[in-house]
């Protein structure tokens, strides 16, 4: 192995690591605010790529049907809960948010597909459509279970993962898709060639992480989320609605996943079930960050990407084994190094 191969492998590892990092951040975000171990994050990545690929082909993507279905279910859930609370006066406004907005996005998506709008508009449309599914998922599945234990939420997450994979097959079909590269250009630096594509992925991920940092550090909404993450009951006492925090969290997390889906589209073929393995690697990153620390989770995800890239060169048959074995020493180290404290439930 010479330097140029090592540089190519490192570049490949960092590019994939950047995508894993976005998923790791989404997983940490969701866990800290809602205590949900968000296994279905990968499905949102698949949906992102497949939606964009559908728009590129000029076909209405399966996301349209998925959004309509979710909006209808959310509308029913909302109506039922308003009925039970005797708060029917608030129902029209809620229905506008839970049913009207997703249906509007679905309509735009369906109408826009044959028009072949410019690529950036298609990306924005994709992000809007997939992001809308995050809050819908929270409203339908997790909000009614907000006070359940972590274990129940985990089991529900596994179920949601299987449902979403099945729906993905139904709406997107069994075959995978790729999206065209953002750019075919490459930069020469000494003996090493960097593709513009991978630079773009890394820069976009860094940018998104920066935006999140600002959001959490400088805006009231971000601070509200942080407060909920630190102490749920305390946050509630000072007037932060847990269901609002949950909705916002799932919107942000779905946006992160959809964005990583857009980024990964030109790199690899994405299938309706591809997301799971990618999110598992993001999950390993998140575990390295102890499911609480954003910088450690991102660094862990980059480490996973690098490890994967180099092990695929040396021992391709054992690549996954090597990547997932990493979690054992990390868990050992974390359980020895940090003082364990039971969650107060």
């Amino acid at each position: 192995m010479d330097l140029s191969i090592a540089a190519l492998l490192a570049q490949d590892g960092i590019t994939n690591g950047a995508i894993y990092a976005l998923l790791a951040l989404a997983i940490v975000l969701v866990f800290t605010v809602t205590r949900v171990i968000w296994i279905p994050s990968g499905e949102f990545l698949s949906y992102g790529t497949l939606t964009l690929a559908g728009l590129q082909l000029g076909k209405a993507p399966g996301t349209v049907g998925l959004l309509v279905a979710l909006a209808i279910v959310a509308g029913l859930v909302e109506t039922a809960s308003s009925w039970r609370q005797g708060a029917l006066a608030r129902l029209p406004r809620r229905l506008l948010f839970w049913v009207g907005v997703p249906l509007l996005i679905a309509l735009v998506l369906a109408r826009a597909a044959p028009l072949q709008w410019p690529f950036p508009v298609q990306v924005l449309l994709t992000l809007a459509a997939v992001t809308a599914m995050g809050p819908l998922q929270y409203r339908i599945v997790y909000q009614p279970l907000a006070d359940a234990s972590v274990l129940v939420l985990l089991i529900v997450s596994v179920a949601v993962h299987f449902v979403l994979t099945g729906l993905g097959l139904w709406f997107f079909g069994a075959e995978g898709s790729r999206t065209p590269a953002f750019s075919d250009a490459s930069l020469q630096a000494g003996a090493v060639v960097f593709s513009a594509q991978s630079l773009f992925v890394v820069l976009a991920s860094l940018l998104l992480i920066g935006v999140l940092y600002l959001l959490f550090g400088a805006t009231l909404y971000g601070k509200a989320l942080r407060a909920t993450a630190i102490n749920r009951i305390g946050a509630r006492l000072v007037g932060i609605s847990p269901s609002f925090a949950g909705t916002l969290t799932f919107a942000l997390a779905a946006l992160l996943c959809a964005f990583s889906g857009v980024l990964i589209g030109p790199i690899t073929t994405v299938y309706y079930d591809s997301g799971f393995l990618i999110s598992l690697k993001g999950f390993v990153g998140a575990i390295i960050g102890g499911l609480v620390s954003y910088p450690l989770a991102a660094a862990g995800a980059i480490l996973v990407g690098l490890l994967e890239s180099f092990s695929s060169f040396w021992a391709s048959a054992f690549k996954e084994v090597i990547v997932f074995t990493l979690i054992i020493p990390v868990l050992l180290w974390r359980s020895l190094a940090t003082r364990h404290h039971e969650e107060d439930e």
């Binding site: 590019t15 790199i267 299938y271 994967e308 391709s316």
Partner: peptide, 9 residues
């Protein structure tokens, strides 16, 4: 693997 994001190595 079928679902590998990259086969560069």
């Amino acid at each position: 693997n079928r679902n590998d994001a990259s086969v560069t190595g």
